[in-house]
């Protein structure tokens, strides 16, 4: 469902060109987890940006197979999409979980989860999306605002939101980076479980070796 082939990305740094990524390739199937592992500055976040369509690669290709109309799958060449096309791709087929700034502070838990549905005109799936709050253990927090939740609770809400519109891919950037060990383990369990249930692919950027070891595929990046 996700195919990354020979992706490269570079950035001009004054007169010099800085190579952030070179020749990165991997494949990911439905319900699988890929851990992008590497030290700080190795390009983990940049790779997620390329897969999510926030950036365009300077070389290589990013392809995603998604469910189309009448259950017919189709392939999206993310690297070739226009800006507007990447915006639509991101909105419809990708879910995000970040380390910080996951939730809109002015929306309740319930409203944050419904946000991707509204953006995609899928409000008829509200019950299904909100039903995910129970298994994540946050059903009783539905009317609360994010600033009244703990870090772990906020991350679980972010997982519910990332999966609300049934995306093909979930991209998670250090989702447990600011949590203690116990909470980190609980959030990781939730994420794995929910992604597998939804048959989505999960690309996880982390420098946590234990988390990376749980993944089906590990993409190791060097400085």
């Amino acid at each position: 469902m996700l195919q990354v082939d020979g992706v490269a990305f570079q950035r001009a740094d004054g007169a010099q060109v800085r190579h952030i990524l070179r020749d990165v390739s991997f494949r990911l199937g439905p319900g699988q987890v890929a851990a992008v592992w590497g030290p700080s500055g190795s390009g983990k976040t940049t790779l997620l940006n390329l897969i999510g369509g926030l950036l365009r690669p300077d070389a290589g290709a990013v392809r995603v197979v998604v469910e189309g109309a009448a259950d017919r799958s189709r392939e999206i060449a993310v690297h070739a999409l226009s800006r507007a096309g990447r915006l639509r791709y991101r909105r419809r087929h990708v879910g995000f979980v970040f380390q910080f700034l996951n939730l809109l502070p002015t929306l309740t838990v319930e409203e944050n989860v419904l946000l991707p549905l509204e953006l995609n005109g899928l409000r008829n799936r509200a019950d299904e999306a909100l039903g995910r709050l129970g298994p994540l253990g946050i059903a009783d927090l539905a009317r609360r605002f994010p600033d009244t939740l703990s870090g772990g609770e906020q991350q679980r809400v972010a997982i519910a939101r990332a999966l609300a519109h049934a995306p093909a891919l979930v991209l998670a950037d250090e989702p447990t980076g600011n949590l203690d060990a116990d909470n980190a383990a609980r959030v990781a369990d939730c994420l794995w479980e929910q992604v597998r249930d939804a048959r989505a692919g999960l690309v996880l950027a982390t420098h946590n070796e234990r988390l990376a070891e749980r993944a089906d595929i590990v993409v190791r990046l060097r400085q």
Binding site: L54, L87, R91, T106, L119, N120
Partner: peptide, 11 residues
């Protein structure tokens, strides 16, 4: 907040 919205697909 705007960046988050943009990432989620708000143009």
């Amino acid at each position: 907040e705007n960046r988050l919205l943009y990432t989620l697909g708000v143009g």
